[in-house]
Amino acid sequence: MTTAAPARRGLAARAGDWWFVAAPAERLAALRIVVGLYATLDLLVRLRLLLGYAHLHAADFKPVGVVGLVVRAPLPPGLAEAIVVAALGLAVLFTLGLLHRALAPLFALALLWVTSYRNSWGMVFHTENLEVLHVAILALAPAADAWSLDARRRGRRGADAPPADGRHGWALRAVTAVTVITYVLAGVAKLRMAGWAWIDGEQLRNQIAFDNLRRAVMGVPPSPLAVPLLESPWLFSALAALTMVVEVGAPLAMVHRRIAAAWAVTAWSFHVGVLALMHIAFPYPLLGVAYASLFRLERPVGWVGRRAAGAARRLTSRRGRPAPARSADR
């Protein structure tokens, strides 16, 4: 008993050390920038669609999640639209890292509301879940300790740049864990609803056929790749097996950086396949943002930032330079 207790303490301490691994502030900041930029562009590109939900027929309103906890009927259209616009503004501030401790949680709440409201009309989509969960974690983490307007202000006051620390590491681990869990849940849902028979591929083929049929009937072109492939059932067996490996094997991504990279590429390929065969886009993973926490993101983001800063400096110095004197004989 006396030997087991230190061993248990040792295990708990090792788990704690692993979870709170020292990570540079720039890595977490880079993740905030990438996720924030994605959220900003996502809200901007889909602004018209998101504003349109304020005008759908009230009878079709079927609130889910946080919306169901707050309201039983649709919001007045003006208010619903104002929240979408506010979320867009807060997304910009989140990306820039301004007043992060106060405004980032507000952004997380606004994004949660806007996306939940969008899902409250009888159809629960699955394209925004990870984005919302990642923003929530980053909003409560010190993700603006570097590369932010907050950090710039602290620097002007003479504060040192923060060192690598466990307070940056846990947030990266949590974002990765949430990603991994969502994939495992998708695998578990298949096993609970269809069992291991799902791997024979018939159900996947039928789902792809069904999805393309509905699109075609509604005048939206079906996938040109899916239509010829539907007559090759063996292919869907391979795709189903690969899907299950990606989903149930997702926790391996937390074990080692190289395994994480391999898993991210495989999971990304799965979403490319869904896009090619069903014309269903999951932009968050397709653009790689869902897997960004698995990588040393500060390197590419820092490189882009330095290039952008250099270009901005060149531009301002060119503007500040006096215009060349005109020759008298011209």
Binding site: G65, S116, L185, M193, W198, A209
Partner: peptide, 20 residues
């Protein structure tokens, strides 16, 4: 639900003949 989902999207059993 949303955002805490069971992710059932490709798990439904679909016959090839569908009514909608």
């Amino acid at each position: 639900s949303f955002p805490l989902s069971t992710y059932p999207m490709f798990a439904f059993s679909r016959p090839l003949k569908q009514t909608f």
